[in-house]
Design a protein around this nucleic acid. Structure first.
Ligand code: SF4
Ligand code: SF4
Lengths: 145, 145
DNA sequence: AGGATTTAAGACTATTTTATCTTATTTTAT
DNA sequence: ATAAAATAAGATAAAATAGTCTTAAATCCT
């Protein structure tokens, strides 16, 4: 059961790294992140581009440029990131795919599945990047080797 | 968020069809099922083979042969089928894949994820084919067009 | 015995998704 | 100017999924 794509996992890791860093300048170069977390630079770049487009990040070119949060990490929730990277319909997935289904004539596992994916959605809606970063630093979790 | 593969969904649909049928002879030909549910015959055959190997189904060749439940559908739970088709580790998946994780140093979403996938597993462990078939027939749900 | 039916087994192909690399452009600091 | 950095688009590669086809073996019917 693979839930999140590599792009999404990489993106989240990188964002947590950023939230964890909060250094002098708000801008962190993608090169640094990719090196530090051992993620393909170009892959991460592409992923970040969509985050920038959607207003999660802002970017600055040139020397000592990089990307930075466009909103405080306290206000960025996992669902925002996931929806951008995995697609809008991520939490509308279907379990059995029976033909002719729908709320009117749902499949026999719909009740359960609706609840399960709802719980997941709620969790993603309420977990912020800052929250995760906090947990990571408090419990000394690693984000890379 | 695609959770189950086509093979698995097809397999489950076909099994529900069988559980729903309970005709004269216990054996149903794969040809009939594939036609009825509009699933590729060979594809379904392959999927069913693994179920037969693992003792969920038994098969009988020759005219008026087919496959039948090796155990009563009341005793076949979704998890049995899913584990065979999707693989043993289906419910051990990881959400964030942070390096160096583990119970000792779990990632910041582990608590939630462990619970979520546990709930899913429990549901799959307690839902039988007979139960689903029952629901389908009682609520007149469709399994094909 | 012979032909029809049906699963078994596995090779093979095709499609889609995921991931990575290449190249070139734009922007900015020094 | 030069170098550092993001941006952009697309080519390529690798892997996973899905689907098809061929042949063989078993079983039944006449
Ligand atoms: S009823 Fe719900 S779970 Fe079932 S097939 Fe439809 S969307 Fe999927
Ligand atoms: S702690 Fe759990 S959810 Fe987090 S990376 Fe490890 S297995 Fe995955």
């Amino acid at each position: 059961m693979k839930v999140l794509s590599k792009a999404c996992v990489y993106g989240l890791r990188a964002l947590i790294y950023m939230a964890l860093k909060k250094g002098d300048s708000p801008y962190v170069s993608i090169g640094e992140i990719s090196e530090e977390l051992d993620i393909s630079f170009h892959f991460l770049t592409k992923t970040f581009q969509s985050l920038t487009e959607k207003g999660i990040l802002k970017s600055y070119r040139g020397p000592s440029g990089g990307v930075a949060f466009a909103q405080p990490p306290e206000a960025i929730f996992l669902i925002d990131v996931v929806k951008i990277i995995e697609g809008e319909g991520f939490f509308d997935s279907c379990l059995l795919g029976l033909p002719g289904c729908g709320e009117a004539a749902p499949c026999p596992v719909h009740d359960f599945w609706k609840e399960a994916r709802g719980a997941m959605k709620r969790e993603f809606e309420t977990t912020s990047l800052a929250g995760l970063a906090d947990k990571v630093s408090r419990q000394r979790l690693r984000i890379s080797e």
